[in-house]
Design a protein around this nucleic acid. Structure first.
Lengths: 107, 107
DNA sequence: ACTTTAATTTGGTAATTAGCTAAATAGCGA
DNA sequence: TCGCTATTTAGCTAATTACCAAATTAAAGT
């Protein structure tokens, strides 16, 4: 879980996860979206894999990465719970935050 | 927003935010919960302040830190949206994640 | 066996980070 | 002003990180 937040700390890695949201992509496909050398990207993939945020899946000579959404969800959900975000009768007199914060979002 | 995720990458800092959830605490109060030197904690406070995750409020000789929940909420919410978490008809054939993910949580 | 293509591993550098001790600053009360 | 308490700033080190170019591995096709 710490690894997940460490992984999320880098903008390139967050970007990779976003790209993967539409479906699996090969390392090369992803690389095309960045201005970084492939080894650099490869390093980012390794971090994401170690955080279990993506799964690898070799197919011939190309390797596909697939988003592991549940791990991300769990980490985020865990943090939110530990912070009392989500449904938490806004604890603490920390100058109550108006409204329209998180909670139940979207349609 | 990048600063927020960078700030969240460190476990001590996440812990500080959690402590602050119950209400404002002085630097010393917080320090008591850790096995770290005060200057080290002070550094963490600075990171949290720069990410705007906490506000400072001097009162005499002691400085109180107060959680800025809305900034955290916005960052998390932003990431979730960009990832399609929350209400997103689980896009991508990425082996649909069973159920009970995030979404609308809590009572 | 050789070549090509896709991606990773290796090895190295510069920048950042987390931690420390010691010194400085800030407010307050005697 | 002196001294006390609370916290930060300064200065340093060790570890980690992001990046790259060059070399290596892996899978296929010729």
């Amino acid at each position: 879980m710490n690894r997940v937040f460490k992984a999320l700390a880098d903008p390139s890695r967050r970007r990779i996860l976003q790209l993967l949201r539409e479906g699996p992509l090969s390392a090369g496909d992803i690389a095309r979206h960045f201005d970084l050398a492939k080894p650099t990207l490869s390093g980012h993939f390794a971090v994401l894999r170690e955080a279990d945020l993506v799964d690898q899946d070799r197919q011939g000579t190309t390797i596909y990465y697939r988003l592991n959404l549940s791990v991300l969800e769990e980490a985020l959900s865990g943090l939110m719970d530990s912070m009392g975000i989500g449904q938490g009768e806004s604890r603490a007199d920390s100058r109550a935050h108006p409204a329209g914060g998180l909670g139940q979002r979207g349609k």
